[in-house]
Design a binder for these strands. Sequence first.
DNA 1: CGCACCATTGATATGGATCAATAACTGTGG
DNA 2: CCACAGTTATTGATCCATATCAATGGTGCG
Lengths: 268, 268
Amino acid sequence: MPEKAVELFIQDLANRMQIRDSEKRQDDNAPLFIGLTEDSIQTLLSNSFMQNFSAGKQLIQQGDTPTHLYFIIEGSIKTVRYSTEGEEATIRMLQAGETFMDAVIFMGGKSPINALTLEDSRFLMIPAEAVRRHALHDAQFACNLLRIVTKHYKNAMQQIDSIITKNPVERLGYYFLKQHLEQDPQSMDIALPFQKSTIANHLGMTPETFSRALAQIKKMGIDVDQEKLTLRDAYALCHFCDPDTAHSCPKFETDFCPLHSDCKTHCH
Amino acid sequence: MPEKAVELFIQDLANRMQIRDSEKRQDDNAPLFIGLTEDSIQTLLSNSFMQNFSAGKQLIQQGDTPTHLYFIIEGSIKTVRYSTEGEEATIRMLQAGETFMDAVIFMGGKSPINALTLEDSRFLMIPAEAVRRHALHDAQFACNLLRIVTKHYKNAMQQIDSIITKNPVERLGYYFLKQHLEQDPQSMDIALPFQKSTIANHLGMTPETFSRALAQIKKMGIDVDQEKLTLRDAYALCHFCDPDTAHSCPKFETDFCPLHSDCKTHCH
DNA sequence: CGCACCATTGATATGGATCAATAACTGTGG
DNA sequence: CCACAGTTATTGATCCATATCAATGGTGCG
């Protein structure tokens, strides 16, 4: 039964990756399996299985030895650290298509984070030992992991920077900007994929402060309608940008990008 | 001339790794080259070279395309991000034997960080393209990179957690604890490897606050003598510990570890 | 010796946390 | 369809930790 599920998953994955190919977006989804041979995927997944968990379940605790790499088929989770007084610091929030425990597996010790489901979720679980072994045999797979982990690391660096140098409004704007670029840079709508209090904690502020920051943002050309934002102005988020984020923006290096030296219109 | 330097370096590295072998500490130093064949190292370093930079030199700017992986032969550097108003957030401070730009090379875009020398320094510089190519050919090398990057990532997570949930004194204590475990868990002395203002920024506080936190720490059984700390009590730092850090402490799971359930002496 | 630079210490100000109350939404059952 | 409880979000009032401002002391270097 587990094997069957995995078979199905592989087939589905293959389908999806072909679709992606034609869309030229093969990099973005399931980056763990990019460029692997059918054989390689089979070997890697030979002891993997699917499992469901209900909302609010602690999958991993700080100090546990990580046993699996989790690939989210359905649902969402967050990874957090707790202080001794029980305060929590949210490191990441993840949705379907993303993986977690991918980095922890290679840290060579106990897990520095807790992982818990935010809603009822379904995972493909690949044994940690299989992942480590496979990485040593398939350099492509190891490089996929590298790309994934470095991306996490980049996000962590931006999170650190945000918390240290930015005020709540700027942090929120920066978060929205990144969501905007990630979801669909053409659309004027941005979805809030998680509960506000969860995002607030991820940004290092209380829900109250988050709420007040939202109110500020409204005044800057962004309509807030429950769990959806609408930009009234395509450039409303531009002054939250930074030099490395700019490069993933379609407006970058057009004369309309406020960071561009020739820009006349949107500079301040 | 560059080739000669690299030859020498490899030889020196080999020597050092043999020494480490006998000390059973082969994991800790030069983790980039662990387990690689002589051939593999040769290929990797074929276009590498040594270069010196004076203190305060910007090696990489945010938004630059990273060109090399740097291995610090001598000196120290820090990686930082700047806000638009010029405030800085220090991500890491590194010394001889460590590498940087290792993760950035695999992020597939522009650098999210600046790197600048803290003193006159000397680096082994390996072209980024060579690193990426070699990672695809030598899975062992890719796994070494994975271990390095995941370690950075772990530190970043702890840094985020510290800044969000801990007050300045706790952050400082946690930093000292980690230094203590990293430098020499047996010794009662801890060296401050960087300028106080640099550490302060890394911990997300001003130099003034750092200074006041130091004063608090003095009251907790730790003598502060300029750039060296001395623990008056081997357990002085224990209540700054957390479940995942504990595992790298020699006192862990002895009855004297305050985190241990059977501990009678040091609990509070 | 004197000039920088860094660290410390004290006085004050302020941004965001906390506390408290209300409002909006979610789902459930009558 | 509405009434209800439970959760999540907003808004207001207050407080406190840490930043900021300012002055002094220490250290190393030319």
